[in-house]
Amino acid sequence: MNATTHAIRLGAERGLREFRHSLGSSDQWYNVFVAVGFLTVLWFQRDAAVDGSTVTLAALTLPSMVAMSVVFGSLVGPAGQLAINREDGTLLRAKAVPHGMVGYLVGRTVETALGNLLSLLIVLVPGLFLVNVLAHAGVAGLLALLAVLALGMAAMLPWGAVAGSVTKSPSGAMGLSMLPMMGLAAISGVFYPITALPGWLQGVAQVFPLYWTAHGARAVLLPDSAAVAELGGSWRVLEMVGVLGVWAVVGFLVAPTILRRMARRESGAEMEQRRQAALQRVR
């Protein structure tokens, strides 16, 4: 086994351990809180019909919520964790070990993927009691949903690493990643059909992965009659794959360069300076 393969294996094991550790953390209460909020929205939407379609507004919303959960987790989670690891010295230690950055990034990817899967289950499983979208989609639809969500995660994950690299504190990373995503959630057709929005907002939403991941989730889980609520009245699967693919490719080209530059600047003095700044914030 060569050094890189060994680093990848160790990174995967670390990601699994950190995910197990996170199951006992207070972060899971946040997931439960979000799931309760989503279910409340579905409850009020369960009897509202989409004009010109045989599906309810809740059926349109559930796949979008699942997609939003994964996209948020793929951007906000890595951004915040990378900023924390810069502050506590984890990244500096990884830099000092041969192929340590490879193992670190693999670990972050594994933990993020498992965390997204958990978020998916927390939202989707109880949501199915209110909206049984799988009745139409079946096993093939569920597998297609996992493929769409994996592509959405790939489109967002490198940009989460970029956000964590260019900010100087965990709060800065959260602000840089969370606030724009909240704005995009409002215009990306997650909670109501995007066709109800002005044309210029529709154009803005279609630039970003959140809209297309939610659109793809609806496409694989809902019947063709639900496409009436989509732009152009159809499922634009090729466009979805194309936009998410471009974000993923560009992200994985840009992120390594930014991460390498950030890692080169890491030093004990820089870490201590950030630690002292963090202590000042706590006081």
Results as ranks from 00 to 15, higher is better:
residue 240 M to D: 02
residue 99 H to I: 03
residue 189 G to H: 10
residue 149 L to K: 06
residue 106 V to I: 07
residue 60 L to E: 04
residue 129 F to Y: 12
residue 19 F to D: 01
residue 278 A to D: 15
residue 33 F to G: 12
residue 73 G to L: 09
residue 86 R to P: 12
residue 161 A to H: 14
residue 118 L to N: 03
residue 147 A to E: 03
residue 43 W to G: 08
residue 85 N to S: 01
residue 71 V to A: 09
residue 75 L to E: 02
residue 216 G to F: 05
residue 250 V to P: 11
residue 242 G to Q: 14
residue 273 Q to G: 06
residue 142 L to F: 08
residue 13 E to A: 04
residue 203 G to Q: 09
residue 39 L to M: 13
residue 11 G to C: 01
residue 36 V to F: 15
residue 275 R to A: 03
residue 265 R to W: 08
residue 225 S to D: 11
residue 133 V to E: 06
residue 203 G to S: 10
residue 97 V to A: 06
residue 279 L to A: 12
residue 69 S to W: 14
residue 100 G to K: 03
residue 149 L to A: 04
residue 78 P to S: 12
residue 80 G to C: 12
residue 66 V to W: 07
residue 131 V to H: 01
residue 29 W to I: 04
residue 256 P to M: 13
residue 88 D to Y: 15
residue 188 S to N: 10
residue 176 L to A: 09
residue 241 V to T: 09
residue 253 L to A: 12
residue 31 N to W: 13
residue 49 A to C: 11
residue 13 E to D: 13
residue 90 T to N: 14
residue 164 G to V: 04
residue 272 E to S: 05
residue 19 F to Q: 09
residue 254 V to K: 09
residue 100 G to I: 07
residue 250 V to M: 12
residue 62 L to G: 00
residue 115 G to M: 07
residue 227 A to Y: 14
residue 91 L to E: 07
residue 97 V to H: 08
residue 107 G to R: 09
residue 144 A to Q: 00
residue 15 G to L: 10
residue 190 V to Y: 09
residue 6 H to Q: 11
residue 98 P to C: 02
residue 99 H to V: 01
residue 194 I to Y: 13
residue 160 G to W: 07
residue 122 I to D: 02
residue 196 A to Q: 15
residue 11 G to E: 00
residue 10 L to F: 08
residue 137 A to G: 02
residue 153 M to W: 15
residue 58 A to D: 06
residue 45 Q to Y: 15
residue 124 L to K: 04
residue 268 G to D: 14
residue 176 L to S: 09
residue 213 T to A: 01
residue 55 V to T: 13
residue 6 H to K: 14
residue 253 L to C: 08
residue 184 L to F: 11
residue 12 A to P: 05
residue 63 P to S: 13
residue 166 V to A: 01
residue 221 L to I: 04
residue 67 A to M: 00
residue 83 A to Q: 04
residue 15 G to D: 03
residue 152 G to P: 00
residue 250 V to Q: 10
residue 27 D to C: 13
residue 12 A to S: 06
residue 123 V to Q: 12
residue 103 G to L: 03
residue 120 L to R: 11
residue 242 G to Y: 15
residue 215 H to Q: 08
residue 95 K to S: 02
residue 87 E to Y: 14
residue 19 F to I: 03
residue 219 A to Y: 07
residue 194 I to S: 05
residue 8 I to W: 02
residue 113 A to L: 05
residue 255 A to S: 05
residue 228 V to R: 02
